[in-house]
Design a protein around this nucleic acid. Sequence first.
DNA 1: TTGAATGAGTGGCTCATCCACTGCCTGAGT
DNA 2: ACTCAGGCAGTGGATGAGCCACTCATTCAA
Lengths: 230, 230
Amino acid sequence: MEPLPRETIVDVLERRLQEDILDGTHPAGSLLPPEQRLAEGYGVTRTTVKHAFGRLTQAGLLETRHGVGTRVRDYLRLGGADLLPMLVRHNPEWLADIFEVRAGVGTLIAERAAAKATPPQRARLRTLLDAVAAATEPDAVQLADAEVHRALARATGNRVYVLLTNTLFAAYLPLRVRLVAPFHDPAESAARLEPLVTAVAAGDPATARTAAQAYLGETQRIMLEALEPS
Amino acid sequence: MEPLPRETIVDVLERRLQEDILDGTHPAGSLLPPEQRLAEGYGVTRTTVKHAFGRLTQAGLLETRHGVGTRVRDYLRLGGADLLPMLVRHNPEWLADIFEVRAGVGTLIAERAAAKATPPQRARLRTLLDAVAAATEPDAVQLADAEVHRALARATGNRVYVLLTNTLFAAYLPLRVRLVAPFHDPAESAARLEPLVTAVAAGDPATARTAAQAYLGETQRIMLEALEPS
DNA sequence: TTGAATGAGTGGCTCATCCACTGCCTGAGT
DNA sequence: ACTCAGGCAGTGGATGAGCCACTCATTCAA
């Protein structure tokens, strides 16, 4: 059992403000109403508003100056990759851009992992590949597939690739119910992934590179096609 | 004049807690002392502690559960790329990993920009290259160089590359005083960058790719070598 | 014309207090 | 001996009133 999250008032307020910012109600660069007024407007305490502001500031959406006010940052120009989950949730159009980057970065990771993985890491990849084939639910297949890619990132020996992979997954896995198209058949999924894992396990960067391109391009195509109808 | 930042109590407390987490005083997975006790210990109000907690939670370092307590997340395993600025500041060892990713991603961006840039974007790159040559201070040269790379990311037409570039810059530009080595001579810096800009402006992905690899590999080498003595 | 003082409006921070949730422990009933 | 309902202690969630500090535009005297 997971300790599943509770929704506090601050959470709700934060999400509300976030949406008002992303959909342009509070455009980038504009000054938000004073905390006191927002608090009255939303029927909460100024303290609560401040808590929500603090989080949004940390997230890179707001900028507060003592004695002046709170301004909406130009997040698209100045923000970092951590904005992606939020942006995707608000506008799935971002998925196409994300998948292109996933394909590019995934190829780099595969190439590097083939060159640098340790023997236990190569063995671990095989195990995780078997887990993909053994999964039953499409959702479980997709998650098992994601675990393979996390392991690939770790196998590069470069922890930045691990964090980058986490960021990309955090951006599109929340929408995975709409992206299960490539994962309905466990055997097929595992077969599609197999050449990549084999090349990495064999320590062959060039083959890993082409295998990654094939795999990532194919799954990307299937996911985006399946997304169209929505 | 920049509106430069003020350091509030919450900022200080946040930084302090962050350091205590990153250096292992509060190891990943451990339960923090109750808010009341921390507040007494640091001589602030529980409200202030909560504000700091809120930001660190948003940053992915903490996890709070009502009625139980606040726990340190396993950020290295679960965290995203937004942790990088913090991690680098605390342990510059990360720079090597970051530069490797910068080289890989930078190459992808150059290739893609060469294929997709619009005419005004190609012209803009030339302008920014001239700005590098025209800069006088090494620091200004480095920042002008960074602007070229931001423009390249924008020229891909993929906004995720822009955010990714922002994340990487946010990670290592704060330490740029220790990384100015490649940028002491404006003319030389511009000359090193010129083949890349030319290839992108000409719309030649293959040449852009090799030019990017040469540029990124060279600057990376110089920066890391200059870093050694510290 | 200058520049010091003022005051309105804003965010920073504290305090005291109450509520809600969780986990454990106790003790009655089986 | 075992079970489980109830209570209880400890924790975070949220409030609201209050005071302080900062910024900026206005005012007014030199």
